[in-house]
Amino acid sequence: MSHKKQKQMQIKSKLTVENKLSITGWFFILPATLLIFAMSFYPMFKALYMSFRTGIGVNMEWAGLYNFTRMLKDKIFMQSVRNNFFYLIIQVPIMLVLAITLASILNNPKLKYKGLFRILLFLPCATPLVAYSVIFRSLFAIDGYFNTILLNFGILSKAYNFLGHPTSAKIVIIIALIWRWTGYNIVFYLAGLQNIDPSIYEAVKLEGASKFQTFFSITAPLLKPMILLTSIMSINGTLQLFDESVNLTAGGPANASITMSHYIYNLSFKYVPNFGYAAALSYVILLLVAFLALIQMKVVDVRD
């Protein structure tokens, strides 16, 4: 046995089972990690560099922290931050509760036509944006279906311009978001529910627990990992909200419903492009989401 081999053997014997498993784990996560570093962190690093520069189009120069102080005076950006938080606080809880409720109904073995119900509830998130924005705008137009119904039932005496008023425009966006993304979240909860042993329910039922008790004492705690996933995803999605703002309300009326991502897109691709400033604003979104996600991970992501 060569000297080298001997040494290897020594090292090998030192490796405990724990260590071996840990190394195996590193190999499992390696490809994904490398790809994220190359395809996300590298461009993000470039964007960070860009956020310290300013200028028009390709004519950029070093600006230090100028972009970050400048944004404090940017009324449209401040408005967009407020809008995003309005959406976040109202939409995310409603949507997640709705999704869990529907998922547990859909998971009930007694439910008939399960497959059909599932696909019908999934339908909205498969609908391309074009169709859904045309439909929602026509639903809420002054002469749209919604106004017609309200007028016929005598709830309104005069048609209301839902997209023309700041608060109602934001509410239309929230309704649209709930409509579109509830089905998406149901998919994850349905998957998560498969790991819950049905006999647990049986046992609890024998003890005479009500549906609500069962839900809060069994379903919710066992779904905790999925709830963490979907809430981080939804917070991230809402703070990066783009499509609805662009297509449903065009940010209007008078920027009352514009989102941060919509504004960033305008700064890069609609207005005279200022990539430095746009990149700086992007990092604000990153920090906001990261902060919220960190709190959640700390609170929820604990192993028993």
């Binding site: 209007g252 009326p253 008078a254 920027n255 305008n266 609609k270 207005y271 005279v272």
Partner: peptide
Amino acid sequence: GAYYYDARDAVCTAITQIQS
């Protein structure tokens, strides 16, 4: 003017505000 779209959106916002 290069800032056509910037100005157009700003004026649009102003007109909406005047309307209300």
